[in-house]
Design a protein around this nucleic acid. Structure first.
Lengths: 240, 240
DNA sequence: CGACAAGTTGATGTTACTCAAAAGTGGTGG
DNA sequence: CCACCACTTTTGAGTAACATCAACTTGTCG
């Protein structure tokens, strides 16, 4: 059941995303398509760790994850959100102890991905660009949490999520699925859920953001972007 | 003058650091030693950009740098501090536009570093571990700015700087050179310089931190660490 | 000495947190 | 279908942490 349960349309978002990062050969495309067959499902709140018997490099086919730092007194910071189509680098437990863990924020399905044949292949370039983008989004997260106020943080995050989901073909026209509770948002933004709630209400009243159920809709993405100095992460050439 | 001006004892901190990350062959060690001859000096507040004609991979031989996000209204966030011995990945201007820049926080000297012969060499492993540590420190920075209060942020940062400098042979027994103004600290911690000032005074009164001129001294590093749940970044095996 | 950057201090304002409780939501089983 | 449960969202009142503004002091370097 956990095997191929989520193998439907839309489950090829990883192919959509990677093929937009670099041009892939036909065998590479096929390998990625086949990778979806290795999918396994992991329940919400479970850890995506070494336990899953994962390959070193995995891809999120559906659901959202997060890299998390948990403090002993209960405080929690979500360091990065992991979206469908994102690559997840599994680290060996003896490689790097950085005090973080990766957890499934919703139910999630992940698959192993093929290793590139050589460093110059399209797949290798796509992976490299993906890693570079991941780093760029870490920088954004630091600036967001360090220098923006609650209102700006929320907008900046929504714009980022919209951009990233769009790359995987999962968002358009400002509308996308946002399966996060307000508490998860708070943990990602360095705020409390109470304050996130009040800020969201303000944004709704102003009509800049809709949030019905688990669907978000940004009303005027371009105008919002200029309000928080949003600069999209753009990749035009491989970093190597 | 800019050429070999800073070539003294202590200018081999990059060799100290890299050789502690992976065992290097004699030719590799020699290449790193020779790399110091390519050092060039860059004045404080200048940008370490594409203009310097730098190689893709460079190393900081002396002085401190920072990767910075500058907002149009004057706000500024230092995303990461770059310390002597740290590697700096220069990105081609058409590779990744992430809205950040790298600047010299003090006068700085940087050198190009040799490319590893093959992916399995000691040098390649050292570079890979260095990159993994850099990412781990980005995670720390997010958690610090997102979930710690001013007092904790300052302590956590001091512990990190101490650890990192010690790896390069530039700190010991809690004492190290800290050539940052309180405003730079504030920009790195997501605070104002006024608040950093007051927090530092509190810490001095409590006797947990000395800050005379540009020298910092942590009184009881171990005890401080437990107060903020400090977990050192440890690397025991290469990530690849 | 003068100028400029960095550090310090005080008074006041605001953002966001804390604590607590109520109200809405969805799923489950009787 | 309803009762119940856990979780999430919402609301209110009071508080604490940090920002802002402005002035003053100290140190450094020419």
């Amino acid at each position: 059941m956990a095997r191929t349960a989520n193998l439907e349309v839309g489950e090829l978002c990883h192919l959509t995303r990677l093929s937009r990062l670099a041009s892939l050969s036909e065998p590479e495309t096929e390998a990625l398509r086949a990778a979806a067959a290795t999918a396994r499902t992991i329940g919400a709140r479970k850890e995506l760790g070494r336990d899953g018997g994962l390959a070193r490099q995995a891809v999120l086919l559906s659901g959202w994850g997060g890299r998390v730092r948990q403090f002993p007194d209960g405080r929690r910071q979500i360091l990065q959100f992991l979206l469908p189509g994102d690559l997840i680098e599994q680290r060996d437990q003896d490689s790097l102890l950085d005090g973080t863990s990766i957890i499934a924020l919703t139910e999630v399905s992940i698959a192993s991905v093929p290793s590139p044949e050589d460093g110059a292949s399209g797949l290798a370039r796509a992976y490299a660009i993906s890693a570079a983008m991941e780093q760029a989004y870490l920088f954004r997260q630091i600036a967001r949490v360090g220098r923006l106020d609650a209102y700006e943080r929320l907008i900046d995050l929504m714009l980022e999520l919209h951009d990233r989901l769009r790359l995987a073909g999962l968002a358009d026209g400002g509308r996308f699925s946002l399966p996060l509770t307000q508490e998860m948002l708070a943990d990602g933004l360095g705020l409390t859920s109470v304050h996130v709630n009040r800020t969201l209400q303000l944004m709704r009243r102003e009509g800049v953001l809709e949030l019905r159920g688990s669907t978000a809709c940004l009303v005027e993405p371009e105008r919002l972007g200029s309000a928080v100095d949003y600069q999209p992460v753009v990749v035009s050439a491989p970093p190597r």
